[in-house]
Design a binder for these strands. Sequence first.
DNA 1: CTGTTAGCGCTTTCAC
DNA 2: GTGAAAGCGCTAACAG
Lengths: 337, 337
Amino acid sequence: MKRHQTTIIDIARELNISKSTVSRALTGHPNVNPETRKAVLALADRMDYQRNMLALSLVTSRSNTLGIIVPEFLTSFFPQIVIGAQEVASKAGYNVIVSQSNESYETEVANAKVMLANRVDGVMVSVSKESRNFEHFKIFQRKGIPIVFFNRVCDEMQVPKVVVDDYDGAFRAVEHLIGTGKRRIAHLAGPDSLSISRKRLQGYRDALLKHGLPIREELIIPYDLSTEKARIYVKHLLDLPEPPDALFSINDPTAIEAMQVIKARGLGIPQDIAVVGFSNDYASALIEPGLTTVAQPVREMGKTAARLLLDQMDREVSDWKAIIRTLKTELIIRGSG
Amino acid sequence: MKRHQTTIIDIARELNISKSTVSRALTGHPNVNPETRKAVLALADRMDYQRNMLALSLVTSRSNTLGIIVPEFLTSFFPQIVIGAQEVASKAGYNVIVSQSNESYETEVANAKVMLANRVDGVMVSVSKESRNFEHFKIFQRKGIPIVFFNRVCDEMQVPKVVVDDYDGAFRAVEHLIGTGKRRIAHLAGPDSLSISRKRLQGYRDALLKHGLPIREELIIPYDLSTEKARIYVKHLLDLPEPPDALFSINDPTAIEAMQVIKARGLGIPQDIAVVGFSNDYASALIEPGLTTVAQPVREMGKTAARLLLDQMDREVSDWKAIIRTLKTELIIRGSG
DNA sequence: CTGTTAGCGCTTTCAC
DNA sequence: GTGAAAGCGCTAACAG
């Protein structure tokens, strides 16, 4: 079958008028005879007419589409970001196209190309844990397509960013642990390539420092954010001659994984080992004991990033400000620490 | 700034050749002088050239894009569907555009229009819990654009569908509860508009029937899938003069919610009340006790739906088969029932 | 092997 | 108030 979609030409022919008039009627142009407009609208509806955005984009050279590039889709974090961003975007008349890189640098590069090829009007991204080269994102900058980073940002690019106060969140989390009497606090840290890793680590260090506790390098374990590795390192920590009495994890999934390991060993949480996470994932309130964690305003972050993007879009490139919006975290104290 | 993206014309001009030649070189057409091709490719790279898919789509009248319409993005279910679908799609050279309706019929209609306007080559959908009218999806059928439903399907449309064996899953779940000695088994059911609700309910009924247990209508509670309502109804069940000794929930989030309520009452799970869910969400293995649940092959479902879509795409409309692919579920027995 | 031409569906001057 | 014509970036015959 010929998959012919109805076009303004079909409508024009049917009504014996020109396609320009149809176009004007459809887009709400003032100079159209009300009669004509009514007829056009009615027929368009009857023929299931849908304006071809691809053609529109071609002539206006704007696609009315925002791109979102995220590293994964397994935790509730990024889907929630998408919800927030979509809300803002659609209110402004924009569509959203999402792609996830599965934490793979290769895929991330491919995704960026797809966004470019589809002529998104702007793109918001959180980088994969593998990414150390950011050429594929600099292309956007060169082309004058607004880009904003959120959560996992790219330090070397001077563009708007949305983050939470990772340093402060970590600092307060660790300070809280110290306040409950913990002294040997371990930290499962993220890969050094991610700035969130570095900032949370710094918060951890400074909290210990402030309270006169020694920083024991053997208790600081950077890993690749995979739950398998997390499991291994937690076991390693427990096997230490002097095991930690608390564990601050860079994220909730790992903290939860750690709790499983600790419970399996028959150790008590938080008496033997307290556990604190970061993000306040959906599952964190459900497990036993509840996970103490640093909550991030996730949906708000998605909204903010989208707004920042829309802001940049109407500006001259030269006006772009490398604004950094820092959202506040909140320490949620539950049973685990 | 003029946001001029480099086009094949720019390249052609620079190289003093025609744009057709550039086009051919870029797309790998055989009839191109190797020298010329090399020059084109090199320059294209240097100029950050990205083929304009919008223009391409316009001429080929295919966008190489699949649409996915889902009702929500809060549980891990739909994001995982997206992961699966994206994997299949991108292997076949297709992009994916996702939109979530937030369980709102209005938004779902709007999303369908967007897909249409963006000329997706096919669309896979799971309907919102509010949807009773499916005109917005029938448009796809009329236009000859492949559509496949998954999970929450539309019964009145003769198109391919991917589901799990809801009836069987529910049946076995309830039979399992009966096997553990439970006799007053309540069912938190979904809205009657969704076929998954009806099928799971039927599985529940038939299991009771088979084992000679009475079907007590007061223990069957259809609700709107919101956790707030779930909470209210669970309390109501517990307050019954003869409360149930087991609860089979249409999904995991509700089952988990129910467990919270039950625990808060100081009742034992599963001794006083056993709980069984449906889906095997991420959190279900983490809570205490672990939730017994009917696992669905989620990612597989996403892949299957995408494959079905690609299949239909090369066919004549008349060839479409209203295939129903039924994937198998697996009862995962944990501590809750 | 390469250039020319037409056209995908739409908006937008520019006339009338 | 309406039509004719140009053009967005690209591919696909059709000639050479």
